[in-house]
């Protein structure tokens, strides 16, 4: 056999072969990835039973909406992120599951979410602001960011002095407040001792006047009914609408501004949620190896196909020249 110089097709095939060998060694590059560590706190107070949301085209309570929303938000988080679950009632949050890796623990997390009910609330009060402050503190000790889902319904109503001052450091813990509920006030279902629904809360079933645990407002003396010894707060025009509930978006926005949390309506898509997180939380950056074997493999495939194309072209050229 005589020596022949390797031709173009051989070179193409040999190069494809070498690239395939390279790809078989599973080359990886390390790339920085941003993960999120979040504590999800779900409002389970009674106003969350108000049915002004829609799930799968059917009317649903706010809590049911949250239970349908949370798995979607969890699955949007990149693997390696961690999520914890807590509920809010009274004036604090209670952690059910401290943050765990989302992908590996997706099943137990979503099962715990679907088991949430208003019956878990240990007291009937709904001090949203205090609960947000408590949840922020809890998230700080856990070293995670916060996602607080609520309708912002304070029961009993806020004192005259307005939102209680935030004792923490605004912005120290990042995160979001997601507002659940419709814009117009709707009645709140009422239940008896055994948990059966027995109608709606009426005007006289709930406290209509603001909390009076705080100091009276500065202008209390000018209010009708003020008395220096028997009524330090004075009367106030009551709206008599505290038994109805709507999403308190401006209030939650103000609460978010005071604590450094971003406010968004809970009707956001998974992508919008990730974008909101990007704006209001710092990611936990890790270096993760990313497989890149596809690049040499794709090139090898292209070269192999090209070698057949060259054969065709070559043959046609020779046929033309002969």
């Amino acid at each position: 056999m005589t020596y022949r110089r390797p031709d173009a097709i051989f070179i193409l095939l040999a190069a494809a072969c070498l690239l395939a060998i390279f790809a078989a060694f599973d080359p990886r590059v390390t790339r920085e990835r941003g993960l999120r560590d979040l504590l999800f706190v779900v409002d389970v107070t009674q106003s969350m039973n108000a049915r002004d949301m829609v799930v799968d085209g059917r009317p649903a309570s706010r809590l049911d909406y949250v239970k349908a929303l949370l798995p979607a938000l969890l699955s949007a988080l990149p693997c390696g992120s961690r999520a914890g679950l807590a509920v809010f009632a009274e004036r604090r949050s209670l952690t059910f599951i401290e943050p765990v890796e989302v992908c590996e623990n997706f099943a137990p997390l979503t099962e715990s979410i679907s088991a949430l009910t208003w019956r878990m609330a240990w007291e009937g009060d709904s001090f949203v602001a205090q609960a947000v402050y408590h949840a922020l503190d809890r998230a700080r000790t856990l070293g995670v960011d916060l996602v607080f889902l609520t309708d912002g319904h304070e029961a009993p109503p806020l004192p005259y002095s307005g939102i209680p001052a935030y004792p923490g450091d605004p912005g120290q813990v990042g995160g979001l407040i997601l507002g659940v509920g419709g814009a117009s006030p709707v009645p709140i279902p009422k239940h008896d001792d055994t948990g059966r629904e027995i109608g709606f809360f009426e005007k006289d079933d709930v406290q209509q006047w603001p909390r009076r645990s705080n100091l009276p407002a500065a202008d209390a003396a000018a209010r009708p009914g003020y008395h220096p010894s028997s009524d330090l707060h004075g009367n106030v025009e009551l709206s008599w609408r505290e038994h109805l509930s709507a999403l308190q978006a401006p209030y939650l926005q103000a609460l978010g501004a005071a604590t450094g949390l971003g406010y968004f309506g809970a009707d956001l898509t998974a992508d919008a949620f990730l974008a909101a997180l990007a704006r209001h939380t710092e990611p936990r950056r890790i270096l993760a190896p990313v497989g890149m074997a596809w690049a040499p493999a794709a090139l090898a495939l292209a070269l192999a196909l090209f070698s057949y194309a060259v054969t065709v072209l070559d043959r046609r050229r020779r046929r033309l020249s002969s």
């Binding site: 059910f96 599951i97 401290e98 137990p108 997390l109 019956r119 240990w122």
Partner: peptide, 22 residues
């Protein structure tokens, strides 16, 4: 005052630890 389900029956160890840690 009320019963609370922290974690349904599971075999995921990290989730168990997360629930007991709380």
């Amino acid at each position: 005052t009320s019963p609370m389900l922290f974690l349904p029956m599971t075999n995921r160890r990290e989730a168990m630890r997360g629930a007991v840690s709380g």
